[in-house]
């Protein structure tokens, strides 16, 4: 299973480090911040939306926790929760990968979709799950997101979407690439109905997801320090042998280059999203 392998690249490292404790510490009372290296009480970290209380580093959080932090209490109704991937192109070993992804994430696929209220405003929401095959997009991720936008268009609802993804899922071959067209088509129709789509990019958002619905929001927010890119930094370093500028492809870099609207701390997100929804309702 993928937890026991050496991380194959920086994206997997980010996704795997999550809120996992340093293995050398037998006592799980403390978690060590990878950014400032200080110890944080593990319970305190969970109460603080997995943000380091010393330096503000945003630890990984799972999709269920994200929903809990974002939506009004008891307002979330999940859609298409039973949908699961099949081996669409007969890729060797894919069924096994799906099985271990389910165990690793406790989810059926790499995105959760549903209807909720945020600050009292009814909206459609999707949240990607990074622990499910690195949040990669295959047919089911594409289908669930497409259906959500179609439902939102029908019911005249805004969409709030949280992305975290290693990109298109290569085990579904060309059909994973086609999900970029499918989802963006649905986003486009939603937009043409003059409905709001807020994309919230979290660490890391890459590849085919960046090149489709992540970058298609009317308003694009990001958490601090999130890696947001099309091609990952390692690929670029390898193919061009250029030295990458510091902070390259981080949220702050994208803000400076004009590709995102604002960087919002996780503990402020609910508030900001609520206000944005109210301004459009």
């Amino acid at each position: 299973m993928f937890q026991f392998r050496k991380p194959r690249n920086e994206l997997e490292l980010i996704l795997r480090n999550g809120n996992k404790r340093t293995p050398s510490i037998p006592d799980e009372m403390f978690t060590y911040c990878p950014s400032c290296k200080k110890a944080i009480l593990t319970d305190e970290l969970a109460d603080n939306a997995n943000i380091c209380s010393h330096c503000g580093y945003h630890f990984y959080i799972n999709a269920r926790m994200r929903i809990h932090l974002t939506v009004d209490k008891d307002s979330f109704t999940e859609l298409d929760s039973e949908m699961q991937s099949i081996n669409v192109i007969g890729f060797p070993g894919y069924e096994m990968k799906l099985q271990s992804a389910k165990l690793a994430s406790s989810e059926n696929e790499a995105v959760i979709t549903g209807i909720c209220t945020i600050a009292g405003v009814r909206c459609a929401i999707f949240v990607m799950e990074g622990k499910f095959m690195m949040g990669s997009m295959g047919t089911v991720v594409g289908e669930k997101i497409t259906r959500l936008f179609e439902t939102a268009t029908e019911q005249k609802l805004p969409v709030v979407g949280f992305t975290v993804s290693g990109g298109a899922r290569m085990q579904e071959g060309i059909l994973s690439l086609m999900q970029m067209a499918k989802t963006n088509g649905a986003v486009s129709r939603h937009g043409k109905s003059r409905l709001l789509y807020i994309a919230v990019l979290t660490n890391p958002t890459t590849g085919g997801v960046t090149a489709s619905f992540a970058m298609a929001g009317d308003i694009i927010l990001s958490e601090p320090d999130a890696l947001i890119c099309f091609a990952g930094p390692r690929v670029i370093a390898q193919t061009t042998s250029q030295k990458l500028p510091s902070g390259f492809q981080k949220a702050e870099f994208l803000l400076q280059k004009g590709f995102i609207d604002a960087i919002v701390r996780r503990d402020e997100l609910r508030n900001v999203i609520g206000k944005l929804l109210m301004m459009h309702s």
Binding site: A214, F230, A231, I236, T240, Q242, F248, Q249, G258
Partner: peptide, 12 residues
């Protein structure tokens, strides 16, 4: 895949 392509928004 390169620095310029990324900073000018290849994904976007």
């Amino acid at each position: 895949c390169g620095i310029g392509a990324e900073e000018r928004g290849q994904g976007q």
